[in-house]
Design a binder for these strands. Structure first.
Lengths: 162, 162
DNA sequence: GAGAGACTACTCGGATACAGTCTGTCCGAGTAAATCCGG
DNA sequence: CCGGATTTACTCGGACAGACTGTATCCGAGTAGTCTCTC
């Protein structure tokens, strides 16, 4: 079990979009160039994020993406689920029902005990992601990225933001 | 991202093995039949568990598997990692290094902030799994499974345990 | 009847095909900007 | 010079191949139990 690399891409791209001035858009081409990624494929990751209504798009020259909500209202979980889907990581096929010692039409009152534990772990994972907002990430980056690189990147992005 | 069905199978099989009397073995064939699973493929899941030294095997007639340790010393995480591997679910490709505004030989002091959050979530997931022991599962099942089915299953298994 | 040897049947383990998803790429529909032309 | 229609160039979005992991299956090496033969 391993997450798609698109998750990483989407998170980084959203971090960039979070720093964009109000009303400006940034194109897939710019985002791909900035991160050294294949433009066409990155596009698919952004599509997912777009379909989840986390970002808005505009077409034509100087078109691209921008956040649909303030960065403080977008969590890691939102982005991860946009790319990976909201389905649980563990699916219970209820194999206990095949137990040859059970009556034919026997109906369980509770979900499988194994599944409950796995789902609980899944929830712990999601809760952690839910607890980190995009604004937190930007704040952290602001503290850790050397000021000159931070400033240079901002201007690099701004130059290409339509 | 979704876990293999082998994880579910391995967990259920270990639960059965946990109820086995001291020194007895149970074969793949019996485990497959009990859970209604393809014998040959289930064998691969048990192989993984075996290679992780969670169970011991014996060949020949009345051979099979048994736990290598008491159920109280085997956690969900042990079994999940045996099947899925110990690698983290999120891999950081350090795409921030492709930032065109960075000096060529720039070296980061900390791991990527995005990766840190994802790894933290991964740890939360693992910690939950680490906190549940196989003996806990058996105990829960003992409380929830109707007594007659519980007893019937035990005898069914015992009849095939060599 | 007892013991040793050979045999048998059953086990696990690795090597081998098939399928589905992730990765990567391409092209078309649509739009905002830029251009051009007429007034 | 200004306004509007046209052209243009650039965007996103979905449709299309290739690679890799997960799924499913098969067969062989090895062993514990069983049977047989001899003493």
């Amino acid at each position: 079990m391993i997450l798609k690399s698109q998750v990483e891409w989407a998170l980084h791209c959203c971090a960039i979009l979070a720093g964009l001035p109000e009303g400006r858009y940034l194109s897939t081409k710019a985002l791909a160039e900035f991160h050294g990624l294949p433009k066409e494929y990155l596009s698919k990751a952004l599509q997912s994020v777009s379909q989840a209504s986390l970002v808005e798009t505009t077409l034509g020259p100087s078109g691209g993406y921008r956040l649909a909500r303030p960065p403080s209202e977008i969590t890691f979980l939102d982005i991860v689920e946009a790319v990976e889907g909201k389905a649980r990581t563990f699916t219970c096929n209820n194999i206990r029902a095949n137990n040859p010692c059970r009556p034919a039409g026997f109906c369980d009152t509770k979900p499988c005990a194994v599944a409950r534990v796995m789902w609980q772990a899944d929830e712990a994972w999601r809760n952690t992601l839910r607890g980190v907002r995009l604004s937190d990430l930007v704040e952290t980056l602001g503290e850790e990225v050397p000021p000159d690189i931070w400033k240079g990147s901002y201007e690099w992005v701004l130059k290409r933001a339509g």
